[in-house]
Amino acid sequence: MDERTEELAGLYVMGVLTPAERQAFEIAMARNPGLVALVAGFRTVRDAMAGAVPPVTPPPVLKQRIMAQLDVRAARKKKKLPPAVSPVFAWPGSSPAAESSVPPEATPKVTSEPMPEGTSESQAEEFEPAEATYVPPEYTEPAQVPYAPARARSDGPGFLSFWFPWAVTAAVVVWGINLYFDREELKDRVFPLTARVNRLNHLANVLCSQTNTLQQTVAGLSDLTGRVDDLHIVLLGPPGNDLPKALGVSLWDNQAQTGVFLAQNLRPPPPGEQFQLWMMDSLYPTPVNAGVFSMDDSGAAHVHFKPDRPIASVTKFIVTMEPAGGSATPTFKDLVLLGQ
């Protein structure tokens, strides 16, 4: 066998020939048993190569889906129109007796035969069940009927008026049946497409939902970023050296107009006195009261505070020792902590 033929056999098996080339090759193959054997050998090699792809297991649910699809198709098949013609649409004189009176030689014969050798794979895949081969009835000379114009016939003009409505009815029925089967076929084609569209819709919904979540997250982060701009963290320390280890931190949320104050290593206030937190804002001539607080046994304090007056821009935090219950304005007799 020459190289060119072997090349064509390889291209044929790998499915890369054009339809015309494929057809020509199949004709050649039908005449050459050696070529058939070569193609069979190449097919085995191709299948082995395909069998060596990395294995991927289909999900178990897929089998259920495919089996269910068979059920749906079987159910549809059962619903199809019965082959018998309803009496309403029966042709005049078409009784069972009339049907049985049709001579057997007028009926086409069918015989079962395997696929022809030269049938291409692609053709075969799209090939409808071909178990029946049409064998036409033997031709017989028609009986000689003398020509006569329609108007001169014995049935005359009544012939058309009688047959025409039946012919139209039959055409409509045939058309309707064709439409019905076309619709069923379309349903079969549409079924997987619909499933795919549904999945894509589902995916789109999931993506849409995720997008919304992300948008919310971004909005939240933007909000937080804005909030961070409004947050002020101020470290407070003792103004003198009499209590070097005392330390305070104030976290102020200007937008919420609230804050948290933490302090450590405070010295217990004298009897009848209390710590008081102040905030300084250029809007006001005197410090704004942010509340009194106490320390625990370890000298620590942790308070949430809210000033008496709205703060535009805090410039300093001050902690002073004031008479129990607090003062309207700081006495500055004992300045404990200061931060800006």
Binding site: R43, T44, R46, D47, L62, R65, Q69, F127, P192, R196
Partner: peptide, 30 residues
């Protein structure tokens, strides 16, 4: 998965057109 579903649909409908001359069943399905 969609392709496999369609292929097995084809196998169900076209199995009767298969002929051993066209190669192994696995090759045909492939």
């Amino acid at each position: 998965e969609d392709v496999l579903q369609e292929v097995f649909g084809q196998i169900w409908h076209q199995a009767r057109t298969y002929h051993p001359r066209r190669g192994r069943p696995s090759g045909w399905a492939l």
